[in-house]
Design a protein around this nucleic acid. Structure first.
Lengths: 223, 223, 223, 223
DNA sequence: GATGAATGAGGGTTCATTCAT
DNA sequence: GATGAATGAACCCTCATTCAT
């Protein structure tokens, strides 16, 4: 029956493509785009090497697809972070914890991004990151706005700068743990360590942006 | 003149080795250890490919040497950061600015470290980072201690956690600027942007660790 | 014509593999496994160097295949050696002559075996020599049994020892002719010399194992 | 003191050369001339690579020297084999045993000779083997002559052919033991196996050349 | 007598990719 | 949709050897 055959084919086709893509994400994350070979990819996907070209044109093509897929399939923060009942502080707390949780659960994400930066974002340029980041940006904005409008967060806090700070403080922990553990003598990988780190970071951020009724103006250092 | 000749040979020998090492640092930083080829290295150093093996045994050997050298030849922060006349806030300010200045001036350092983390610190394991980091740790410790003893910084600030936060907030800016610029729409590379970023970070950190006479106890978020 | 084309491809494929194998046998026999280079092999086979890896995985793989093939493609002695009409002596005579004829006609066989012994049989270990040797063993057994049962050959002749003697007396002639010709002043290569040698050997063997009615027991030397 | 210095030098010089030569014999025997590298030789001898060229000009030069030395430093059979009191049979017995003993004790000799044959005696051509073989030839001649003149050995036994047979039957055992053990299922290496083999060979040879009073003329096989 | 520096050629092997069906 | 055959370029590394001192 040709129809059935065609259907089977289509199903197999989709599965084959999917398998290759998954292999791509896993291996590119692990070894990086240059050290990952076609043979490794085909081997991991369990398909003929030629198929890779059939579906993705080239290694670079697969890499691009893997990159895109990586971004698309992950929701970095949950949308319900901006719940009405919560205080600004609680929202920020949850926001940071969500970042940590996500990065901790998706090491390939961390690695793929790192590789992309090393290649100067050559490929990520063709991926619409904005769409993926939107919920993140939004979640932080809600928290920040709520804090500002309630007079609890400083009005001069720049939203983007704060976002970058949040990403720095979370991403670095996972991306650089090997050199850091050598440099500072603290292994950042254990869940214990992560918990300790999160607490420090949240406190730092909250106190860092909060409005303080010190009486005296906080001194701008230098300048 | 035999003596002169021998001297020439000696000098050439040292120079050859040095040239290879420099090429190693530059190219490993740029393309990573696996994508950097012997041919590229020899070409850049202007020597015969064979010499690389003569002096460093293997590509891995050169990579290791480059790694070590990178760490040793750079003073990340100046020792005079802990000058007596300065306030704790000023010290911390200078400390952060020193980190930014160093990383901005040494992109190879940032990249080499990033490669190393991707290879899970396989090579950095054999390098005594502790010695290099000592002045950094010390500089921060002086600032923090001064602030604590003067009652200006919170006593419960963990020195190591703060150090990691400082490194995160500076390193990330340089290591991940390509994905960030795509994600947030801010290019972190320009000196303008760096200056703006530093200001934000310093303020965040200072306010984040300072003792505030708010009247109310600062709320520990969650837990 | 697709069919024809496919057939051509198939045939070419088999032919390519065959050509490489032949080149392997010839060159490994001539220069030994270590001195034979991939370039030489590909050149002789008239194929791209890469194909060698495609079909045999590695030089060692080809060497192994060549070894195996060498054994399999040759019938060292003809099966009809054990014809009923012939006397035990005639059978042995023919057996020895068959060995000489084979080794004389297949110098690569002699050389490959010699290389293998120098590498301590590392590769031959994976080849089922037993199967190849079976006809040889069988042929000698028939002759020996016939002689024994007719009371013409000594009953205490050990079959395996005799076989090794036959192989020694024939193989050595071809394997060591260069040093022997220097040592004894006789070139063993000429067909004349071979004929003379065979006669001596056959006579030696026959008289060496025959039952003699000397009246006196042949003296066991020593012991 | 210059004189003392010069003497020391000369002594060291001789020792260095000797060490290189020994390394050559050992390594050439083990890996063959082509697979033995300068580095290996220098490493084993414990000298600078350059020294090898100083003393022997090239690898080939060292190989030649090693070859020559190997021949010269060994007495294959003892000169006292031709003692008056012994019977011809006993002499032959001792002769064969001497061959086995020598080859068993000098595996490098066997291997070097084998390698030379594989390179078609290219180097051995320049070595005066005759001188080394003389005692061997002589020992066999004495035994054979004594046997012939006493009417115990056949007069038509050709001395050279017999010599070659003796060498075949002994040499092959050591040179080809790996393939033989695979082919016949007998490991020829154990001292037990050697003893058994020697007995068989001696008996074979003695009976093979002895004059038998069979009544009937021994049949020439074929022709 | 001994050494460190340097070389060009070539070793085996693997790369991403395309061909023809 | 899937495959086996084939390719040229490049990979890291090691070879025997010579240079100048």
């Amino acid at each position: 029956m040709p129809a059935a055959n065609r259907a089977t084919r289509r199903r197999n086709s989709a599965r084959t493509k999917e398998r290759i893509l998954r292999a791509g994400i896993a291996l590119f994350a692990k070894h990086g785009p240059s050290a990952t070979t076609i043979r490794m990819l085909a081997g991991r996907a369990g398909v003929n090497r030629r198929m890779l070209y059939y579906y993705f044109g080239s290694k670079e093509g697969l890499y691009r697809a893997a990159m895109r897929s990586m971004y698309e399939q992950n929701a970095i923060v949950e949308t319900e972070l901006s719940r009405p009942g919560l205080s600004a502080e609680e929202l920020l707390d949850r926001f940071v914890r969500a970042l940590y949780a996500f990065l901790s659960a998706h090491p390939e994400f961390v690695r793929l991004l790192t590789w992309e930066n090393l290649r100067q974002g050559r490929t990520v340029r063709h991926v619409d990151i904005g769409a993926v980041m939107e919920p993140v940006v939004e979640a932080l904005r809600v928290a920040l706005d709520r804090g500002k409008s309630e007079g609890r967060f400083r009005r001069d806090i720049d939203e983007k700068q704060l976002l970058i700070s949040c990403m720095s403080l979370s991403f670095f922990t996972f991306a650089n743990r090997h050199t850091v553990s050598r440099a500072v003598g603290v292994d950042l990988a254990s869940s214990d360590a992560v918990e300790r780190r999160v607490k420090h970071v949240v406190r730092l951020l909250l106190d860092g942006i909060r409005v303080h009724e010190d009486g005296r103006r906080p001194r701008r250092s230098r300048s």
